[in-house]
Amino acid sequence: MQNSTSVFKLSIIGFGAVGQGVAKVVQNVPQLKVVAIADSKGVALMPDLEDVLARKRAGQPIANSDLTALDVIRTVEHDVVVEVTPTNIDDGEPGLTHVREALKNKRNVVTSNKGPLVAAFSELTHLARTQGVALRYEATVGGAMPIINLIRDTLAGARVLGIRGVLNGTCNYILTRMAEEALDYDQVLSEAQDMGIAEADPTYDVTGIDTACKVVILANAFFDRNATFADVNVTGIDRITQDALQLARQRGFVVKLIGDVQELTVSPKLIPLRHPLNVSGTLNAASILTDTAGEITVAGKGAGSIETASAILSDVLSIMRSRD
């Protein structure tokens, strides 16, 4: 109880869309104090958040010290490392080293970065347990859409029999636009790239890799599968044509890229128009089948700076509360 009013200190490792979103949303919580922010070029110690955000927006360097991100994680005294560097599915780096070092130094970790969890899920969760700290990753799946904490906390006690969903907003946007506007795949893809919904290299999203990473994380978190990316059977959306979507429509279906956690598959599926997983645009949705609560479906914004930061904030706050 004695700590309940004291400050809770965090570092933000990675200062892109999500890191900046975190810097914005933590300002709403007076108990939270950001002790360091790192981007790929350097570290701002004891940053003034508005000032650092303005610098980053203006393309100026944020660093005000000689420390590296790893130095911060190892030596600066704080409670939570918010790890939001780019996802790397080959070896999880640099995130994996950041997370591992944070846990070794008995710091809690909150991340939106799928890389470390896909590369070393059991190592990291085991390490967190033995170190007596938390590793939370709500934002890695579904952005602002609650799923991991929903299952872990709200549905505690129910046995999860299956999880499947629309877990990639870029794919969902492309398929929705193609079907609704009768546009070709290439056309919608470039439109999505212009709008910043798809990356310049869209491979990671459209071939189903991103969805597969989320499937791996959920499979490890809730089915003890010790799965890796290689265990997932993946088919993307890049071969889907506009007229195929029209044919499906005539039979009362839309096509969605569905990740099925129990099956460890990612593939396009026909979804009846009135099905709860028929969410449009960049939305994500997931259905959770449980033994006692039946089937529960959630939907929400799967990406976005502030949206993803909101999921990170909820993880940070639940760690802070559990310490009280």
Binding site: L161, G162, I163, R164, T235, R239, I240, A244, A248, F253, V255, K256, I258, D260, Q262, E263, T265, S267, P268, K269, L270, I271, P272, H275, L277, S287, L289, E295
Partner: peptide
């Protein structure tokens, strides 16, 4: 490419 309805292999 074969696309089947969701319930065919669903939860």
């Amino acid at each position: 490419l074969v696309i089947v309805p969701i319930d065919e292999s669903g939860i």
